[in-house]
C-alpha cells in the first residue's frame, strides 16, 4: 500500500472488500429473523463506516447470537448507549468484530425510558462492566445481569450524568466513606 493513498480511496477499497460479505450476512439475518430487523443502514448509502442493524429489543439476543456463532463476529469490541431525546429515548449500541473476516458490524436497539434490556453477558462475559457503565450513566437496566449496580459514580449518587437532561454542573459531594456492605465480597460474579 502506498503511503500517499488518499483516505477516501482507502475506505473505498475497505467497502469494496466487505460489502459482499456484509450483504450476504444481512440478507441471511433478514430472512431468518423476518420482522425483527427494523432498519438497515449501509455504507455509501448512509454516512457510516460499517453497516448498522436496527433490531427490535425482543430479538436482540437472538440476532447477536446468530452474528456471534454463525457469522463469526466473535468479539464484542464496544457496548454503549446514546440519549436521543426523542421517543424511544435511548439507543443501545453494540460494536462487533470478526477476527476471522476482520470485518465489523454495528447493532442498535431503541429503548424507551424505564424499559429493561436483555443482558449480553449470556454471550460475552466482557459485557458485564460496559452494561454496568451504561446503567450508571444512562439508567438503563439490564435484565439477567449478574451484578446490576453503579460502577463509576458513588453509590449514593442521584441521577444519571450522561442523560441529556442532567445538568452539566450537577455537583454532588460525598465527603464521608459509605458504610461497607456485608454481602459485597461474598458475591463471586461481580
Amino acid at each position: 500500500m502506498d503511503i500517499n493513498t488518499p483516505v477516501t480511496e482507502l475506505y473505498g477499497s475497505y467497502f469494496d472488500k466487505y460489502s459482499e460479505i456484509w450483504k450476504n450476512q444481512i440478507n441471511t439475518i433478514q430472512s431468518k429473523f423476518s420482522g425483527a430487523i427494523e432498519e438497515v443502514r449501509f455504507p455509501r448509502e448512509y454516512p457510516t463506516d460499517m453497516p448498522i442493524l436496527y433490531v427490535k429489543k425482543e430479538s436482540l439476543i437472538a440476532v447477536l447470537e446468530e452474528l456471534k456463532i454463525a457469522m463469526g463476529y466473535n468479539f464484542l469490541s464496544d457496548l454503549t448507549a446514546t440519549d436521543e431525546e426523542i421517543s424511544p429515548r435511548f439507543e443501545m449500541v453494540y460494536h462487533l468484530l470478526s477476527h476471522e473476516n476482520m470485518a465489523r458490524i454495528r447493532v442498535k436497539t431503541r429503548v424507551n425510558e424505564g424499559e429493561d434490556v436483555p443482558t449480553a453477558t449470556v454471550l460475552w462475559m466482557a459485557a458485564n462492566w460496559p452494561e454496568r457503565e451504561v446503567y450508571d450513566m444512562f439508567g438503563i437496566k439490564f435484565s439477567g445481569h449478574p451484578h446490576m449496580r453503579r460502577i463509576l459514580m458513588d453509590e449514593r449518587w442521584v441521577g444519571h450524568p450522561l442523560r441529556k437532561d442532567y445538568p452539566l454542573r450537577g455537583y454532588q459531594l460525598f465527603p464521608d466513606t459509605p458504610a461497607p456492605k456485608a454481602d459485597l465480597l461474598e458475591k463471586s460474579d461481580r
Binding site: 458513588d154 455537583y171 454532588q172 459531594l173 460525598f174 465527603p175 464521608d176 466513606t177
Partner: peptide, 10 residues
C-alpha cells in the same frame, strides 16, 4: 474526583 473525595477525607 467526586469518588476520591471520601478517600482524601479519610
Amino acid at each position: 474526583n467526586t469518588k476520591m473525595a471520601p478517600i482524601l477525607r479519610t
